[in-house]
Design a protein around this nucleic acid. Sequence first.
DNA 1: CTGAAAGCGCTTACAG
DNA 2: CTGAAAGCGCTTACAG
Lengths: 309, 309
Amino acid sequence: MADATRERIKEYAREIGYIYNRRAASLRTSRSGIVGVVVHDIMNPFFAEILRSIESELDRSRQTFLLSNHYDQLEKQRTFIDTLLQLGADGVIMSPAIGTPAQDIRLIEDNGLPVVLIARSVEGAKVPVFRGDDAYGTSLSTNHLISLGHTRIAMVGGTDQTSTGRDRYQGYVNAMEKAGLEIRPHWRFPGPRTKQAGFEVAGAFLALQDKPTAAVCWNDLVAIGLMNGIARAGLVPGVDISVTGYDDLEEAAIATPALTTVWNGQREVGRRAARVLLDRLNGAEVNRSQQLIKPELHVRQSTGKPKER
Amino acid sequence: MADATRERIKEYAREIGYIYNRRAASLRTSRSGIVGVVVHDIMNPFFAEILRSIESELDRSRQTFLLSNHYDQLEKQRTFIDTLLQLGADGVIMSPAIGTPAQDIRLIEDNGLPVVLIARSVEGAKVPVFRGDDAYGTSLSTNHLISLGHTRIAMVGGTDQTSTGRDRYQGYVNAMEKAGLEIRPHWRFPGPRTKQAGFEVAGAFLALQDKPTAAVCWNDLVAIGLMNGIARAGLVPGVDISVTGYDDLEEAAIATPALTTVWNGQREVGRRAARVLLDRLNGAEVNRSQQLIKPELHVRQSTGKPKER
DNA sequence: CTGAAAGCGCTTACAG
DNA sequence: CTGAAAGCGCTTACAG
């Protein structure tokens, strides 16, 4: 068939409103052009920034992406994975829910869907993982505070239930120990990773007898919430209490005061994860190991010398 | 077949890893269980809050939702709609991109997908619309500022290209005119609806000879950005300059100072839009008119009496 | 009531 | 090289 004829037919098809049926095609070819993306919560700007770069990467390969939040509920995650399998998705990018067993990852792969993990790893799962080097990251911010002269430093937000949480805490502990500083258990405020949570910690934090002069926060949201709480109590963040964040969201630079934080390479994580998945879809053999993206400290106005020594 | 037998078979199917093929089923029944949701940008917490309530509503009916951002690009929106048609989606909930013609909505409906609009309406499209009463909303915040004694009031952020933008500006104009106050063109700062944009307006705003004592902002993001900019310039928002937001995001209550804003019923919008779509999917005849959700003023600390008269 | 057959709209392997 | 047929995995209408 001549190209001109082909074009004329396409033109005519468009005219009469023909719609290509992807279900039928997919049934026949067992390729759907759908990639699943599962994260904790798209309302979290950290994931939103990752999603954007995944989106722009997948767009180029004309893959449709199917998004879901699992809110750290294994059940919700499994339901979504099931939906992906039923729809014949081609692959999955996921930030696994807390407690995801390696077995769940295996099951997806056994059903023919390549998996790429982001942000969190799963012990024992043999798939590519892209995440920041969290322990290194919090050691950067903790060391920065130590070098300013702080000795009583708190850790606010996060949980021990994720690899990220454990690593970020470890980085803080490493830096403190290396500097010979004391780590008091009640200086740690575990909790959700939201502004609201940071805001709510402020009261307890400021009421401590042996009140720390600085806080390493789990992420920017917690840090901004904590700063809001400190400001609400009539103190000045960055002057009375130094605060560091994590992620370097777009918002960090315009917070008041501008937030000292750790750039976590979310753009990079999304882009690389999407590319590796596309490579796997094209049958390429890829590196099934953990790829740590090196974080960087961005110093702004929320940290300064301690007021009292 | 007895129920017990049916259960045993299901059990066995699960055991051997049987996966129900929804593409095949959908090909046969022409029902896919997929609902498309298109918004401007999921990174915007306003849409994120709407999406949450849509999600929880659709979850109950076991509908999968396929999400996409159009970033106000008609082309991106059309591509996504095309994908939905090809996948045989059952319906669409959308916040239409700027410039969406009624024809585009018709085309979707003609292909058998019921459409429900949220947040914005499309002139001439005969489909249900759920949005806040924007003109009424900004008149609430403007009147609040007027009653505090402000006479020079600016409008920051937004665009005339959307029904929402025009209505919010109109509400401000109405309130100003009713109070016999002057509306100066350079007191209007149109612009994107982001924190960044609000932050960047602060400089020009504060440099005005006839500087307003208050600003009605397009949404909470713009308001929080503007407040950050005001604080960065050494002034105190809520004392030196009064600021109002719009939406009442979760964040508004923990901003510094806590933001006076207009609750915009995003939960309500999402919930009702999802329900009406589900009703349409079940063949029910629904009200194809615009449903305005009545906004409410939430007064907090970012507004006060004008400092100078 | 039960079971085999037809058909949804594609793609691909195969016969002519 | 071209065109008709088979088949992906379901559901439903129909014959027995």
